[in-house]
Design a binder for these strands. Structure first.
Length: 498
RNA sequence: GGCGCUAUCGUCUAGGGGUUAGGACGUCAGAUUCUCAAUCUGAAAACCCGGGUUCGAUUCCCGGUAGCGCUACCA
């Protein structure tokens, strides 16, 4: 039997900013497939209609292209298994869900979210594993029909064996045994008719002829569900390999609260895509000869899955910075460097965003450097003293920054929204907007003499602003005295729920 | 809590039944440089703990511990 062509995929969910973790998993899938002359597919998992956005999807595609992780099939390039966007494949999943229903491998569940939530609470407080209790499993066919007739919303859940265990084979970890009684009767098709990850993933991986699934470690526990679905459908199981998760310095799963995670951040900071990719290749993987600097091409040529180590690697910005420096010094000519800088910021598109902000504030072009500096910088060097120069006292500055860092996560990153957020903070703290804004000008622009704050924040992007605000907060100290805590608490109670 | 995964310098890692446990980032010291970077040299720094198996375990096995992940009509 001829060995089928290796086909791998990365399947990001377009919610929020493009994540380094996506690039990380994509890199390994890319290298694994390319090394063996196979194909690498990109699929958009946008079945969560509440959270998925087209902007996010576009940003993911752009970021992966920026990194040079090109896909053989997927959005914008198409392919024999189009569409590659799950929201456009809805009918497919419904058909397959019905197929499971008919075969008796799945059942309709009419339970309300409220009941499920109560049930889980009860289970938890009774010290039991939370999981569907099987209520609708025992519904008579007649009752199902009558509930259907009265248009009651329902989901489709998969049936799961009550006893025994499932052994999933992991390419790196070997057999992993998981008892069936720890596996929930997973919802496959939501009430809105959209599939959950589990169904969509299995159906698409099969139809798209994926041979090897390299994905994050967080999926290990649901692998039995997937294996069972393959069995229910009678499809061959792709090889599974769970990659270790990228970590924050405190070892928790990489998160934007503790580490910049957006690829847009790394781009805006001026990391070279080659260097970022190179650094990701150093996470849990190493060249056979120990060489630390390598291109994507070189990584493809020498890639061996066996060289993936299983401990979760801490993403270290310092070492990434060193590597990036090496790339700038060693791999770019002067001309190329100039070109890079232009592509990065000295291009018409970016400059035109700045021009309206700076032109009215300068008398000679030479003033431009100062005003434009924040837009050509990563983390700005400031002093605690500069942050304290305004009318707010130390605790107020600290609280204001802390509050902004919290609230900025839930606003749309547009200048009007940013304005409202900061006005809201001034109001909540009972200080003049002008006084509140002063330390923000310093934190974001490096100086109280600056282009308008809200515009600057929008242009710089959420991630860079977060990093600068966090830097400023670190300088003045987090609000941690009992007094400041009380203050924060009072303000929070005053706020509308987020 | 339950289940699962993981465990080598602070961090990324190499290695592997017998090694002075290797490299890199960072740190410190020195050299060099008009400053700063860069560069060079050197130093400190690790096999989680306890039992086995073995002539010998950091390496293999078991247990513990710790970290992490999952425990949704999110992925």
């Amino acid at each position: 039997m001829p060995k089928p062509t290796v086909r791998t995929r990365v399947a990001p969910s377009p919610t929020g900013d493009p994540h380094v973790g996506t690039a990380y998993v994509a890199l390994f899938n890319y290298c694994f497939a390319r090394k063996q002359g196979g194909q690498f597919i990109l699929r958009i998992e946008d079945t969560d209609t509440a959270r998925s956005t087209r902007e996010s999807e576009a940003a993911i595609l752009r970021s992966l292209r920026w990194l040079g992780l090109t896909w053989d099939e997927g959005p914008e390039v198409d392919g024999p298994h189009a569409p590659y966007r799950q929201s456009e494949r809805g009918n497919l999943y419904r058909e397959y869900a019905n197929q499971l229903l008919e075969a008796g491998h799945a059942f309709r569940c009419f339970c309300t979210p409220e009941r499920l939530s109560k049930m889980r609470d009860a289970q938890r407080s009774a010290g039991q594993r939370p999981g569907y209790d099987g209520l609708c499993l025992r519904l008579s066919p007649a009752e199902v029909q009558s509930r259907l007739a009265s248009n009651e919303p329902f989901v489709i859940r998969m049936k799961v064996p009550e006893e025994g265990s499932c052994t999933v084979e992991d390419l790196l970890r070997g057999p992993i045994e998981i008892a069936w009684n720890t596996v929930d009767m997973q919802v496959l098709l939501k009430a809105d008719g959209m599939p959950t990850y589990h169904l969509a993933n299995v159906v698409d991986d099969h139809l798209m002829e994926i041979t090897h699934i390299l994905r994050g470690e967080e999926w290990i526990n649901s692998a039995p569900k997937h294996k069972l679905l393959y069995e229910y459908f009678g499809w061959p199981m792709p090889a599974l390999c769970h990659l270790p998760l990228l970590r924050n310095p405190d070892k928790s799963k990489l998160s934007k609260r503790k580490n910049p995670t957006s690829l847009l951040f790394y781009e805006r900071m001026g990391y070279l895509p080659e260097a970022l990719l190179n650094y990701l290749g150093l996470m849990a993987w190493s060249m056979p000869d120990g060489e630390e600097k390598f291109s994507l091409q070189e990584m493809v040529e020498r890639f061996e899955l066996e060289r993936v180590s299983l401990g979760g690697p801490v993403f270290d910005l310092t070492k990434l910075g060193w590597l990036n420096g090496r790339w700038i010094r060693e791999n770019v000519t002067d001309n190329q460097f100039a070109e890079r800088v232009c592509r990065w910021a000295l291009n018409e598109n970016y400059l035109m965003k700045l021009v309206p902000l700076v032109r009215s504030r300068i008398s000679v072009l030479g003033d431009l450097g100062f005003l434009a500096a924040p837009f050509l910088s990563g983390i700005i060097t400031i002093t605690p003293g500069q942050l304290m120069e305004g009318n707010l006292d130390h605790d107020a500055v600290s609280v204001a920054l802390d509050l902004a860092l919290m609230r900025m996560e839930s606003v749309e990153w547009k200048k009007l929204e940013i304005e409202n957020m900061l006005k809201g903070i001034a109001e909540a703290m009972g200080v003049k907007l002008r006084d509140l804004l002063r330390p923000f000008f310093v934190a974001i622009s490096g100086s109280p003499v600056s282009v308008p704050l809200y515009d600057a924040m929008e242009i710089l992007g959420r991630d860079l602003c977060r990093a600068r605000l966090r830097h400023a907060l670190a300088l003045v100290g987090k609000p941690d005295s009992p007094e400041k805590r009380r203050w924060l608490k009072a303000i929070r109670e005053d706020e509308p729920a987020q």
